[in-house]
Design a protein around this nucleic acid. Sequence first.
DNA 1: ATTCATGTTGTGAT
DNA 2: TATCACAACATGAA
Length: 244
Amino acid sequence: MPEGPSIVILREAASVFAGECVREVGGNSRLDLARMQGLRIHAVRSWGKHFLLQFEDFSLRVHLMLFGSYRIDERKDTAARLSLRFDNGELNLYACSLKYIEDDLDLAYDWSGDVMSDAWSPRAARLKLKDHPTMRVCDALLQQSIFAGVGNIIKNEVLFRIRLHPESSVGALPPRKLTELIREARNYSFDFLAWKKTFVLKKHWLVYTKSVCPRCRIPLHRAHLGITHRRSFYCGRCQIRHDG
DNA sequence: ATTCATGTTGTGAT
DNA sequence: TATCACAACATGAA
């Protein structure tokens, strides 16, 4: 479930609860869930991979991590981490990380860094990247402070689309390539969103979990790269390495 | 049955 | 102090 576009889908589905009062709270979280009892949801929001329920004086941050899931007006067999019942339905969250945020969300989050947000700023991303010239692009794309919402699938597909080798360093990129990287991080994320909504995401993967380059037909490389050691699928011929 | 992965944080060693 | 390997959490597909 967990890359930014999937969280947008959750946010859109859960938006029916905006303005509703929490009638009943349940779940096995160690958090003080009763705190939400009887309170009204002021807004249903998201930032990157964070799903946010904003109350009057605080917010709940939900992170689905790798295995988290949710159901709306349905339940799974397993125990919910958090279950919220409203007059118009219920929201059940499983295997996720919960945290209360006391600060105003507009202060707590850098909205210009969320690739799915209207407030996304390519300029801000560029400035942030300038601060990390030695960082490899496979790590930069996963850096949530720069590209909030980008995950490992998006990373791989973006790098293939712009024909950039994952181990290229940020500082060695020609300005045009840097522009492409930033533009495609957002652009692919919206393709991801549309495909996910129509259940055709996987069939559009060009390199993620693939073994042959769809462009030149040679075998793809498959390695755990960068400081993040996340899976990278890339073509050694099509994806150019820029290095300092 | 076992392995691994769309993720992140915290701990303890070096 | 910084860096890093590893653990932890938790689910389900291959």
